[in-house]
Every structure is written in C-alpha cells, then in structure tokens.
Design a protein around this nucleic acid. Structure first.
Lengths: 343, 343
DNA sequence: CTGCGCGATGTAATCGATTACATCAAGCGC
DNA sequence: GCGCTTGATGTAATCGATTACATCGCGCAG
C-alpha cells in the first residue's frame, strides 16, 4: 500500500544527476548551475523527498536540535520563555527538546546524556542546579561551551547566563513599599537552594537594613514559588503577633495565593496588607485587586538565551567568552500596594 | 585538550570483543554470557562510552523521539499535560520535542516534516487543526498510525483521540447554574474554529433549550480562551440591557479575567453574577472568590495520550483500531456561583 | 595551438551504530 | 566417536546522507 520513502539516490536518478549534486542543491544551492538546480528541485518535488535526519546528523556530526531544561513545566512562568526559545530555534531549523528537571540530579544527568550521545547540539537550562563535577566532565569533552543558563544560573559553574536584573527587581519592590510608608515588611522566599530565591532574599534584607528597618526572623517566611506555598505563608503571616503591613513575595504565584488566603481570613489588600510579587505572569493583571509586581520580560529572556546559544553553535569553537546578560526588570504598580493602615 | 568521543570500536577493543558483542550488551544483554557482559560493561565505564544516537537511529530506522504539538505554549493549561507526557516518554527512553503551533497551518507542516524526515517516531497533537489532505498524505506514507490527538481532535480526520468528556462538562456547568435558579445564562466561547469551543457551545445551547431557557443572541459572547478575551467579554456583558445572571465560560482564563473586569465595574461575584469556568487550572482555587469550574484531569490526559502513542509505537503495525478515550470531568463547586439576585 | 584555471559535477569514502549470517565450541544422543 | 543442536561470538553489509578529491569541459592568455 505505502511507497517506501524516497532516498537521495531516487532523487538523483529522477534528476539524472549524482547524489552529490542533490545534496549540494539542498545545502549549497549556489554552487550549482541554474539548470541543474532546477532539475534537482523538480525531482525532489516529484518524488516527495525529505532528507533523512539521522543520516545527515550522523554524517555532519550535528543534531540540529537543542535541549531546554525546565525546572517545572507546570509553572506558567516558564511556558512563555519556552515559547520564545522555540520561536528562535524553529526559525533557524533547529528542533527543541524539553525536559522537566523536577527530580533532583535530573538536570545533570539529562544534560550530559543528551549532549554526550549527540541528541542535541546545545542546552538551555532554566534550572540553575548543575554540579561542578558535571561541569568538569562536560568541559573535558568540550561540551560545556554549548550550555547556556537562562533565568537561573550557577554560582559555582561559570557559564553564559541570561538573567533578569534580580537585585534591581528586589530593590524596586522593597523601595516601593518603603516609599509608601511601610516599616514592617515581610518576605516570602523561594526554595532555599534556588539562586533566584537567595538573591531576592539577600537584596530584601540589604534594602531593609539600608532603610533602617528591623526584620523579625518571623518575617522571612519560607516558600517555594508555588501557589500552595503562598497560601501556607499567608496562614503563618496572619497568626503573627507583630504583623507586617507589607509583604514582598518571591513569585507572583506566591503573591496571588497569599492574597487570596489573607482575604479569606478577613484581611483587606491593600488596605491592611500590601503585597508585591515577582515575575508579572499574565494573570497578575487580571485579578482583583490587580497585582503590583516586578515584571520580567520573559519573551526577551527566552529570545536572548536562544540567540546566545545559536551564536555559540554557529561561531568558531575558539569563542570562549562567558557573557552574562541582564534583561531589564520593571516595577508594575497596580492595586495591591498602598500606604500602611493608619497613615 | 579534549579526548575524541569513544566509539563502539573503542569499547570493543578495551573489552577484547567485537563491536557486535558490545552492541548486543547494550540492546539484548541476555544473549551474552555473564562473563563477557561484565567485561563489556566494565569497558563501557572505563571509556565513558555513550551510544551515538544518530548512528543508532539511522541503522534502526527509529528516532526514539516524539513530537508534541502545542497550540499555545504560553497557556498554563497545556503545561501540565506536557509535563505528564514528558514523564511517560522519559521513563521509556524517548525524547520529547515540542512545537508551538501558533501560526496557521503550522500544525500540518510541522507534523509532516518531523514524521517524514524521521526526526520523530510519533506525534501527540494538542491542536485539533489538521487538514484532511495532510491526513491523506500521511496515510499514504503509513505515518498516520503514529499520530494521536490529545484534548482537541479533528472531526474530519479519524485518529486516536484522548479527550475530556466535554459534553458532560458543559452539561454539569449549565445544570449547576440552572439548579441554583438561574434562567438567564450567558456563554463566552472559545475560538469558533476550535472543536472544544464548538462542543461546549453546542451543549450549552442544547441544555438551555432542554431546560426551557431562552438564549438571547447577545448572550453568546465570542472569546478565544485567553485572559484578554475574558475581559472583553465582561465589558460586553456589563453593557447589556437584559443582563444574564450567570455566565458559563469556555475556559478558566476567560472566567478569571471576566470576573476581575466585572468586579471593577462594580458587579459582585457571585451575588450579582455567577461564573463557571472550564479546566480547573491551578490558580482557579487560589483567587477570591475561588472559581467554580469543570475540572479536567490534565495529568491523566497527558499520560493516557502518551501511553496510547507508546503502545502504537511498540505494537505491530497491523493494529489499526482508532480508539477514542474519554477522561472524566468533574464539577468543582467553589465560590463564584450562587442563586441569582432576588431569590 | 597549448596549457592552465576554474566552475560544475561525479566517485567513493565516511559517519557509528545494528544485525543477518557465518563460524566455532561444547554438549548430547546413539 | 560422529553428527547435530544450541549458544556465544565474530565478520561484514547496511542504514542514507555529506564531502574530499577526482574529473571534465570550457574559456582565455600566451
């Protein structure tokens, strides 16, 4: 019933040329005479030929694919980044593989698997967890030059990294609350082993100190970026004897569910409690009250990372610079922040 | 500086066996004697060997990869599905490619590209748009048997399909509102060319008729599943002279932003307006008031689709059944629905 | 007219695995 | 002891493209 797939020799036969010519028509069309080029393309159309990727990849020692490592595919923060990474690579003839790096050590394992066996030419990892020993292994095989961090990064492993200006973001958030008159500010953190969480927290503390604010230990509430951790944080916040009048959340998801839970408990936002998020996910502007937050340009982050990797894949291997690029962040003032009660 | 990647011959040399034996150690270990198998594995460890995927794929005529076509990667509804698809395939040694099928016709093009050139063994498409002519083309190459629809599907192209019980979902939503006493119910639709949108809308109309409710033309408000379309729908709803007391939204994103916009305009939810969504995305339970909605089991949908495709990839080609599986849906009653005002 | 250079095209080696088939040794029944 | 089966392993063809090198023909300078 079904025809066998046409191969390059079939096309060559139909066009009356050699396989070398067909191959050249595909990869370097200007090296052929107008006439034969036409004949080859006609033959390709006639036969319905598609180049076999595995064969091409084997011969050229390239995969034409990249891997994107996502800490949590279910998190809407990442989806838009993924989408713009996808756009850039699709436009350049690359396929995009994704992998969810939920389980610990998966990141390491997956990256090295895919790179070593040649499934992909490069990796963009949105997950900053990569062990130095893995980095060493990759470097020894000269595979490290095709790994780019996006959003997150590793302190111990020096690699190109595209990231938002997190310190600025945290500073904008805290300063905004201080400017409104808040003196008692809480912070709900991300996971303690997460680099973004650490940076945001340390800048939070630094700015509070800078403004002469005390930080009760209770006011640093551990979270993990997720909705449910935001709800839990709200429950702790509510019960505090000396309750903060504002809270800076390490992610929008934390902020949104914290608000919801706080409202359930009878607190009014922003009258009783001001809340600032981080990320500006799409829903943030579509709830009541609309969330004041720090915008990260996710599309830009994805695009920059993709272009950085693309450049490395195409440039000559001696290119050894390790750039760190910062994407701008911006305070988006909406309706979850106001002066503290009694002012 | 860097060693060349070890090949199978290197392993063979170290182990003192032939390449055939090494290959067998990897793919059918029980065909080797205990002793040689050990020797081979030792050699593999010693050399740091990884099989070259391109070579294996070329020889075996398989890709060890599948493609997932996502209508909109930025939409959180899809991310969890993607995640569970990823889990199933990762556990079975397959890679997962994703492609965002935003632009029209991309679906067709991408699916046929990837299948024809052997980049992937199969496709799960979350996008129901596939032209019958493309289906024909694929069928002629016997590639159609490795395509599975998930969530969405095509009316004109008979393919295995994993989907939620959408008619039931829509029925539960409408009946719930009717049971609360609503007689004037609006519906915000998805895109008119979307199969889910069409089903949900038609069941909505059917149930309204069944309950003897009139539907003013104004009460069917076009949307496209997105947040911004929900806000637009709210604006239209607000201005209606004969305003419905309840609205059934084709997606949670529509519902959430509709609520937000309606609240901004001074309407209270659920006192003045009841709202039911569809999907039960994670945030739905983490806003105030929490969204009443129809839950789709996204993880299950993804898993079922992945397992269906996996089965087809592994089963013998004579397997020609075209199953349609329905995942259960469930009404999640939260706080955006109540009896109509004045009751 | 000769020879050289150059552009267009063909020939055949090559990428790195898998696997059909060949070979070999050991075990077994008679 | 012989022939046959069976299990373990080796030899070499093969998958389908790319590309280094060879070849060919043509135009042009000398």
């Amino acid at each position: 019933m079904q025809m066998p797939k046409p191969r390059i020799t079939d096309v060559a036969q139909v066009a009356g040329v050699s396989t070398a010519t067909v191959s050249r028509a595909l990869t370097q069309p200007d090296r052929l005479s107008e006439k034969t080029r036409q004949r080859v393309f006609d033959a390709i159309r006639a036969t319905g030929y598609r180049v076999n990727r595995a064969a091409r990849n084997l011969r050229t020692q390239r995969a034409g694919a990249v891997l994107v490592l996502v800490p949590n595919l279910g998190n809407p923060f990442f989806s838009l980044i993924l989408s713009s990474i996808n756009d850039v690579f699709a436009a350049n003839g690359y396929s995009v593989l994704v992998f969810d790096s939920q389980q610990p050590n998966a990141a390491d394992q997956v990256v090295s698997d895919y790179l070593f066996n040649g499934s992909v030419d490069g990796v963009i990892t949105l997950d900053g967890h990569m062990s130095p020993t893995m980095g060493e292994t990759l470097k020894n095989a000269d595979l490290l030059r095709n790994v780019v961090f996006c959003c997150e990064w590793s302190d111990t492993l020096l690699l190109p990294s595209i990231r938002s200006d997190n310190p600025l973001g945290a500073r904008l958030a805290v300063d905004h609350l201080v400017a409104l008159g808040h003196r008692k500010i809480a912070h709900v953190t991300g996971p303690s082993d997460n680099i973004l969480a650490r940076v945001r927290r340390s800048v939070f503390e630094e700015r509070c100190t800078h403004h002469g604010l005390g930080i009760a230990p209770d006011w640093i509430i551990p979270g993990d970026f997720t909705l449910s951790s935001g709800a839990r944080a709200a429950e702790r916040l509510i019960t505090l004897a000396d309750r903060p009048t504002a809270v800076f959340c390490a992610s929008d998801e934390i902020a949104l569910s914290l608000i919801s839970r706080a409202q359930q408990a009878g607190l009014r936002v922003p009258e009783d409690l001001s809340v600032v998020g981080f990320d500006d996910i799409e829903i943030a502007g579509h709830v009541q009250p609309a969330l004041t937050t720090i915008r990260q340009d996710r599309a830009l982050l994805g695009r920059m990372a993709a272009e950085e990797l693309l450049g490395r894949l195409q440039s000559d291997p001696s290119h050894h610079a390790v750039p760190i690029s910062f994407a701008p962040v911006e305070l988006i003032t909406r309706n979850t922040t106001a002066p503290p009660p009694g002012r």
